[in-house]
């Protein structure tokens, strides 16, 4: 990699790593794994930098590497605990206790999703990718994205205790067993 390409890569990392770290965090569920995942993905991107001709496509390349790498990590690491070092926010305008319980339940349910389902949910609802964009990024059909996401949402509803009206499904004390 020549100095000009290296400078371009530095610029890309500086501009995009905070956003990519957030995606990595949602894919892995904890900060340590997220940093490791992002560093691995960016190191692979660094090695492939000269081959990536369209700079606009770099984000997609890094996301794809993260999803593939994280999938393999999940296979290797039997995760028994899903720790978080970030406290959920306390929003205003809604019952904070209920919000907290809802988010905790949903976060726990997310951690129990198979890796591909979790990746699709993150790409669809955090990255706001369309079904077609998600399909392209993961190398699967739009139909697979639809069916997998649907199964993931069903599982999230079931596991977290959410129903179509999440507030109606909560017990009075806001605690989800």
């Amino acid at each position: 990699m020549d100095e000009q390409a290296r400078e371009a890569f530095r610029g890309y990392v500086a501009a995009r790593s905070p956003a990519l770290l957030r995606t990595a965090y949602l894919l892995t569920g904890n900060r340590a794994d997220a940093e490791d995942l992002l560093q691995t993905a960016l190191a692979k991107t660094y090695l492939a930098w000269d081959r990536i001709r369209e700079r606009e496509a770099v984000d997609g390349y890094v996301r794809r590497v993260m999803v593939n790498t994280q999938t393999s990590w999940w296979r290797r690491r039997k995760v028994d605990e899903y720790a978080t070092d970030v406290l959920p926010e306390r929003s205003t305008g809604r019952d904070a206790t209920v919000d907290l319980a809802l988010h905790d339940a949903l976060w726990t349910a997310l951690a129990e999703l198979p890796k591909r389902q979790r990746a699709m949910v993150v790409l669809r609802y955090y990255e706001d990718l369309s079904e077609a964009e998600t399909a392209r990024l993961l190398g699967v059909s739009v139909g697979t994205v639809k069916s997998t996401t649907s199964r993931a949402l069903s599982k999230l509803r079931e596991t977290s205790g959410l129903r179509d009206d999440p507030r109606a499904s909560l017990p009075a004390d806001g605690v989800l067993a």
Binding site: L26, S91, L102, H103, L106, W107, V121, L156
Partner: peptide, 11 residues
């Protein structure tokens, strides 16, 4: 809820 959760945790 998912969008709210992701935003709140990641941001």
């Amino acid at each position: 809820e998912l969008r709210s959760l992701f935003t709140s945790r990641a941001d």
